[in-house]
């Protein structure tokens, strides 16, 4: 069970970066770390002891021997989640570049002050 706990520690580091840091790049990094922790947790749930990866081979299909495989359902969900994480990252980078062009800084407190 120590793997689950380490995974949540990783999540909390990302949460700390999002809540405390003032640089927008550090906030993007924190969101990426949170995404990594969630993906790792889903995959950890589906792991089976001493099992094979969920791809059948020709020998496996004809003989119908051992079907001891890891859980394929969380892997299929995480596969979509990785792509959505990429989409989140590119749109955050574009918004931060736009704000840098307008205000000349990545500091979020400066941006809040300049708004008036």
């Amino acid at each position: 069970m120590i793997e689950y706990f380490l995974c949540f520690v990783l999540f909390c580091i990302g949460l700390y970066a999002v809540a405390v840091k003032r640089n927008m790049i550090k906030i993007i990094i924190g969101l990426s770390i949170m995404g990594y922790a969630i993906n790792l947790f889903f995959t950890l749930i589906g792991y089976v002891h001493n099992a094979a990866y969920p791809i059948l081979s020709k020998v496996n299909i004809t003989q119908q021997t051992s079907l001891n495989m890891v859980d394929p359902l969380p892997q299929a969900l995480v596969l979509t989640a990785i792509v959505i994480g990429l989409a989140i990252t590119i749109i955050l980078v574009s918004i931060s570049i736009r704000l840098y062009e307008k205000y000349g800084t990545f500091d979020i407190t400066e941006i809040r002050k300049l708004k008036g």
């Binding site: 790049i25 990426s32 993906n39 995959t43 990866y53 596969l79 990785i82 840098y100």
Partner: peptide
């Protein structure tokens, strides 16, 4: 290590792309 080769390929490729975009775009 968790027997998920599909996820390993996708994570590797996506990570390289995010790294390039972050370095060239913001830093």
């Amino acid at each position: 290590l968790l027997q998920a080769p599909d996820l390993a390929i996708v994570q590797l490729v996506v990570e390289i792309l995010v790294l390039v975009i972050l370095i060239r775009g913001t830093v």
